[in-house]
Design a protein around this nucleic acid. Sequence first.
DNA 1: TTGTACGCGTTATCAA
DNA 2: TTGATAACGCGTACAA
Lengths: 329, 329
Amino acid sequence: MSVTIKDIAKEANVSYSTVSKALNNSPLVKEVTKQKILRVAKEMGYEPNLAAKQLVRKKTDVVGLIWPTIERIVLATLVTNISKAFESTRYSMILSVDSAETAIETFKKFQVDGMIVFAESENMIPEENIPLVAYGVSGKSEVTYPIIDANHEQAMDQAVEYLYNLGHQNIAYVGLMNTDDALQNEKVEGYKKAMRKIGLTDQSIATNGLDWFDGYLAVDNVLHIEQRPTAIIGGSYDISSGILRALQEKGISVPEDLSLISYDNIPQMETTEIPMTCIGVPVDELAEEIVHAIIERVESEEINVVKKLNPTLTERQSAGPVSEDVTSN
Amino acid sequence: MSVTIKDIAKEANVSYSTVSKALNNSPLVKEVTKQKILRVAKEMGYEPNLAAKQLVRKKTDVVGLIWPTIERIVLATLVTNISKAFESTRYSMILSVDSAETAIETFKKFQVDGMIVFAESENMIPEENIPLVAYGVSGKSEVTYPIIDANHEQAMDQAVEYLYNLGHQNIAYVGLMNTDDALQNEKVEGYKKAMRKIGLTDQSIATNGLDWFDGYLAVDNVLHIEQRPTAIIGGSYDISSGILRALQEKGISVPEDLSLISYDNIPQMETTEIPMTCIGVPVDELAEEIVHAIIERVESEEINVVKKLNPTLTERQSAGPVSEDVTSN
DNA sequence: TTGTACGCGTTATCAA
DNA sequence: TTGATAACGCGTACAA
């Protein structure tokens, strides 16, 4: 059987309520005794019993994360980062890969203090009175829970401007569009708006999906645009990877012949065939914000409805100044 | 505040200990009262308090799954399936995407009854006395916990034989080899052994990694083997996807010009460019076995050390009879 | 500053 | 067949 505060009390010659106070760093116990108790506790290998604590505290210090679609790598990275971000807090995170419905079932059993959901699982049960924070859906106007979102428009603006300052005039965007995926739509719209603002013409190319292969296939279309682009903005990590691959195969040098900026800002951008310059809110930052938001929400009933995060452009090797002789092609 | 058994007791005019019995389907309570209590409980929206239960039962009915490497799609699918498999049991699963070390930390806090680990995280702390089941490492001989593994050798045997019966004599294997990844090595060895048995010559091609791109690149090497293969066995889903892509680009028809069988048996094989014939233990089956094993382990201290699962060959469209005129190339 | 005693929601043991 | 009641490990008023 594992050691309890009573065992510690006996060992330290104090009552167990004193032990409890000491363990919780209460000011109601003399420093000397506190130290002594802490030492004894460590010696005996004491581990607090969560269940007992929870029973009296009515709080678990646990938040649940629903992650029903395991596929996309960017989300995987985000989840890992969120998990890591929780480590420096008093909270633990449990992860569910089930449907929102059964996930919530589980979370209720564990009596989580709050939960994080991704945009995709909007078929969540909002009637639940569990504090909630969502990532990636700023579309709806009438929401009752905080939403963390990246400022996609600003991201596109930065990317376009960055390329423009490098001398690029023909900038294509490759990504999924015209679906009911609000996030993807925001990206294209942001791109179009940014182009319009500077006075450049829209050169967006739609993909069929979000996989690398979709990016791979789109390159042919890009190269057949009348005013051949000297730069491409890829709509996601996977898509950009596919684009990069296709360019390599066609013998088009990046960034000499053609520049590429990828959406999403994750460490993996560093390790593609050619390290990719990218735009987006850095995942670690994103994770911090999400974790912060749910804790805030749990601890103080406040609802700061929508928070738009500012993206960062991370310079690497896939984007450079436009080359003079590229039009000869 | 949520409703407790005491609330139910009051409402149903019985003592709360009777309610407890009824809720646990004890035979010590008359059927009529049981039904009544169950009805009242449902009406009041009763949800049992796990913490309280756990406090007295010394058991959580929760098992933890350590999943430190989120990337590989096959594992993602397996995790999802394991999660699903738990739904039909009395157990819940919690998932950790942290390092084995911090994952175990968390699991201890939650006081899980057992845990599942994947081969990769062999830096786990075996000194813990938490029941453990591992997936995918049958290499080591002296283990103290159950191991679930696929019979890789038999899988390769089946694949080779299947192709051989289709008339193929030159069968290449494309996969990672000569690393310290025991699982990958077992696959190649299985292939070689199977080829030797039938009297065919080894045509294995090593990749640099396990990504689709590694498979993609390997195809060139395959096509330059002296006795040009009429069939390829891809070492994993990702690798095979890359192979398939490369073949398409080169205008090589599958399966008319060249047959392809992929290792791993997951539903996604159905939705590749050309539905892939594959070999391996079906994930759902694998998941069931793993879940069964850990529960067994938790409930009856027994340790049935290693369990090798038999693979299944699932026929789809990527493999067919050898064509006569292929040697003309 | 420390100790006593009660309660959190359940299960389990014993009496009734 | 049912009902009291004692744990389970901990936090916390309240008393000392």
